[in-house]
Design a protein around this nucleic acid. Structure first.
Lengths: 223, 223
DNA sequence: TCTGATATGATAGTAATGCTATCTTAACTG
DNA sequence: CAGTTAAGATAGCATTACTATCATATCAGA
């Protein structure tokens, strides 16, 4: 059985956490902690206590907690792209690819044990709440130069290409696709916490509603 | 000449900053500082130094810097709604109202001296970069109970009503409108910092492009 | 004009945060 | 067996995010 390993941009870490036991413990525990505490309340001290290690040891893997968040989100985009590839590879038309793609983007992941150190369900909740914080900073330009947002950009590019295949005259494929990728997260957050900003409801059917919404938005817009 | 005064939710502050000289200095200086430093690097200590006051005095106006940000964003939504009201009030059809509304939402504010204590251009930059941080927190539910997001919700409701007037069968008017309001900010940020996620460019024509993009998105989707 | 109430300033203090540094031990590698 | 590397242990430090107290200035009502 082949093991899956995501090669992420080395600027995201100081020492590759996927390679060592401590590294994997850092990942699992940080996902658990950020999910429960929120990113603001999450500290390397609490993380170190959780895994019976020390702050100093954690700092050997990640420059700071912001980089760790960028790592997790980077991992998420890679994982999402991988799932999109799986579900679209055997489809013949860009139209079908887009529909399958939306389905994956809007879907609720139940459980996945491909990666033992990663709780994908908690990670998804983290992405919903914390994604925007990875780039909404004063260092965004230097982070971008280091390629820290490569996962997001790559995925956006891939999907935009399908959009352009369907309608080569449409002027805003990247804008449309990044809007859809972000909206998929934001609307889940609104459904959970600010229901008057959305029409999706709190039950699990919201993922189906989200899919319908995004599909209509995408297909009608490119017409 | 009537002076404009925005009545904001009192939970946003401890003492109304619009009423006193120190309060107005806090607002002006915080807008200037958050704009240059970014919200993360902004502290009440730096703010107090900037206005030759003390940390303690600032804390008498706002519980903490997060509340201050929520106040500024709340002020922004009220101001935006006011400008939307102005530009739509004399239009006969919801279709025209929506188009005028999109124009305001996508527009670049050059200068406005209605409020001497508020640099609206800097505030708009702050909203672009920091808006999402006002609600992407663990306290979102209690903040929402206190009505801290009332400005955003009210505006969303108003615009959604026009959408439903045009197409009463469309199932996701709030989802669509909140998406558009957020997208207007995010895409400006992308144009500035992450250009591969957008097709808008860095020049001022980007506001016109944004308007076109949002208008198509909205009208074709409910179309 | 006196009397409070209130706003602000001045100053101090404290726990937590976000690191950095150094030293030791344990493990694994050639 | 020697040498490198990872991790743990411990210390320290500047900044942050407050809270508390006391003094002073101001202004409004009696």
């Amino acid at each position: 059985m082949a093991t899956l390993y995501f090669r992420l941009n080395p600027h995201l870490y100081l020492r590759d956490p996927q390679q060592t036991e401590l590294g994997q413990k850092i990942i699992s525990a940080s996902v658990r902690l950020i999910d429960t505490l929120g990113f603001e309340q999450f500290t390397f001290k609490k993380l170190a206590e959780e895994i019976d290690s020390t702050e100093a040891s954690v700092y050997r893997y990640f420059e700071n907690k912001h980089r760790l968040l960028q790592y997790l989100v980077g991992w998420y985009w890679t994982w999402l792209e991988y799932r999109i590839d799986l579900s679209t590879s055997n489809l013949p038309t860009p139209h079908e690819k887009l529909k399958a793609c939306i389905k994956v983007v809007a879907s609720e992941k139940k459980f996945d044990d491909t990666f033992e150190f990663m709780d994908e369900v908690a990670l998804h909740r983290i992405v919903v709440s914390e994604l925007d914080k990875t780039y909404l900073t004063k260092q965004v330009d230097s982070d971008n130069k280091d390629g820290l947002f490569g996962g997001f950009k790559l995925l956006c590019k891939k999907i935009s290409a399908w959009v352009s295949e369907i309608n080569p005259t449409y002027a805003y494929p990247h804008t449309l696709v990044s809007t859809i990728l972000l909206t998929a997260k934001h609307q889940i957050f609104f459904a959970e916490h600010l229901p008057s900003l959305t029409d999706l409801d709190k039950t699990t059917s919201r993922h189906h509603q989200l899919e319908k919404f995004l599909e209509t938005l995408l297909l009608k817009t490119i017409g």
